[in-house]
Amino acid sequence: MNNSVSKAGFFDVLPLSIAVIPWGVLVGSLAIEAGFTNWQAQALSAIVFAGSAQIAILTLLSAGAGIVSQATTVGVISSRHLLYAAVMREHMSQLSRIQRLIFGFVLTDEMFAVAVARHQQGIKFSYHYCLVSGFTFYIFWNLATFAGIMLGNQIPNLDQLGLEFAIAATFIALTVPGIKNKPVLSAVLVAGIVSWITQLYAFTGGLILAAIAGMIAGYTVEVLQERSTTHNEGKQQ
């Protein structure tokens, strides 16, 4: 039984793991450029394991930002995981503390995305599935970082090749097929627009603000739709 769940976990996250390779390479090479040793650059991916926070911190380091703004930025960028954990919380009641700690360590955008997609297909939550996809992604991420460390020493300006597009493509592939109704469409539009505007004004909390705005927009449209259908049904009777 666990075998087929393992396979599903591995193959569902595989596309995302491959897509993240360019980004991992970028993180590895940026770390070297920022003055990290090879070990430190690898440890960044191995213990922090948070792509966008890693990129942000490396950019801040290169710009010479202070410790307070570094911590704030990492905190704000990571805060979206609070939302993921809130969603996953209902599945945690049967798990031990150790299991929850491990689950938390591999709770990334990608693992969350595949777990949610599976749940939407009506398949019951599986801790095992989440760990397999989480650690598969972890291994790819760290191998890609390793490649970046090796390449970063050789290819200058690796960060200017537009490798970050791969991650945009991944997230497009994860969100666009799910746009099947007006609430989701509204959530996506509002999140995208708010995110863009807050980035324009370089507002650090923009990501989480955009996410919450999008979520509330989706919920609001859902409620409005419900009301109008119950209203129409009332008319017909």
Partner: peptide, 8 residues
């Protein structure tokens, strides 16, 4: 709506 909103 977490996944579509955050990823977008």
């Amino acid at each position: 709506y977490t996944a579509p909103a955050v990823l977008t």
